[in-house]
Simulated scan of single mutants.
Amino acid sequence: MTGRDGGADIGPIGNSPVVILVRPQMAENIGTTARAMANGGLFHMRLVAPRDGWPLERAWRSASGADRILEAATVHETVDDAVADLHHVFATCPRPRHIVKPVLTARGGAAELREMTGRGLKVGLMFGPERAGLDNEDMARADALIRYPLNPAFMSLNLAQAVMIMAYEWWMAEDATPQRTLMTNETHVATRGELDNFMRHLIGDLDECGFLRNEQKRAGMVRNLRHFFLRGEVTEQELRTLHGVVTELSRGRKARQKDAK
């Protein structure tokens, strides 16, 4: 099952956490887990006693191109063997089962994992079988537990979803994407000069048509108009459209005045 062609370029591997799937039961779930891992920059997979053996063709069909993760996945008979070379191991757990260990959220766990890998340590994330999750013996091998703060009335996740949450938080722990951006496509946010040019055009036509004829209110009205256009990030394309609107309104008014004579 090695040497496959056509897998996607999933980026540099680096020292990311090892995803350890303990007794996974379905090939499709292993494949979709690889896909979720690649989404969030997790590239190391270890399988502990997979129910149907390994490799499994159906896993590749479900991975959507994350072939490199599956090809590099290693198989281990026990959890102890899978974690033997790691410095820290976190285990995902829907509910602590009479175990005294630190319990982290996915975000808190990702932050700690980032700090550890930043010091060159090797870390692992354990996920249990689809039906029952990790048992107490599995969790005894972990330094801390990770529990997702989801709807307490319905916390059911499939394996790939559980991995995706951690992969997302791992990625976001160092992602610099602004929380809000303005998509301008082929145009750009208008400069103050471009806005001033439009305001001169607009105010000139408003003066000409008599809209600003009240001298006492004129300054405040102009100021309100300026505030309106400065309040948001108006684009250069939008200003060109508004220039056209003002020009056509003026042209139509003059045409009507000419026809009335």
Rank of each mutant, 00 (worst) to 15 (best):
V246M: 14
R213E: 09
T105W: 11
R97H: 05
V18F: 03
L230G: 09
T32C: 02
L249W: 15
E77F: 01
I165T: 07
L242C: 02
M183D: 01
R192S: 07
S64G: 11
R200H: 01
P17M: 00
R213I: 01
A27E: 08
N29D: 13
L134A: 00
P129Q: 05
G204F: 06
W171Y: 11
G109L: 14
R51D: 15
G65Y: 11
N29L: 05
G31N: 09
A142T: 07
G14R: 04
E238F: 06
P178Y: 02
A132F: 08
I69T: 15
L157H: 02
L47G: 11
A167S: 14
G120N: 11
T74M: 12
R68Q: 12
W54R: 13
R46L: 03
L121A: 06
C209E: 03
D81E: 11
A91Q: 10
V89G: 14
L230E: 15
R58H: 10
Q179F: 08
A260H: 10
G41R: 10
L42H: 09
T191R: 06
P94N: 00
I10Y: 04
G204N: 04
R23G: 04
E233I: 01
C93F: 11
N136P: 10
L145K: 11
G120W: 11
R251G: 13
A142Q: 06
P55G: 15
R180T: 03
N151D: 15
L104Y: 15
R68T: 07
T247C: 04
L125W: 05
R95S: 10
E215I: 02
M26Q: 11
L70Q: 08
L225M: 13
D81H: 12
E174V: 12
P55K: 14
E77K: 12
G118F: 07
A72Y: 05
P17G: 01
G133K: 06
E248L: 07
G53P: 07
V234S: 03
I20N: 08
A84F: 10
P17Y: 00
A260S: 07
G14F: 03
A219V: 07
H243A: 00
R131K: 13
R51T: 10
G128H: 14
G124H: 03
N29Q: 07
L150R: 05
F228A: 15
V234R: 02
W60A: 13
D85Y: 01
A72I: 09
F198G: 00
I165M: 06
P129Y: 08
L249F: 15
T32D: 09
E112K: 01
T241Y: 05
W60Q: 06
R107C: 00
H44D: 14
E169S: 00
G65R: 09
T32H: 07
P152E: 10
R147C: 14
E238A: 06
R251N: 15
L21F: 13
H201N: 02
V222P: 14
V79S: 07
A73W: 05
N15F: 09
K261A: 15
M45A: 13
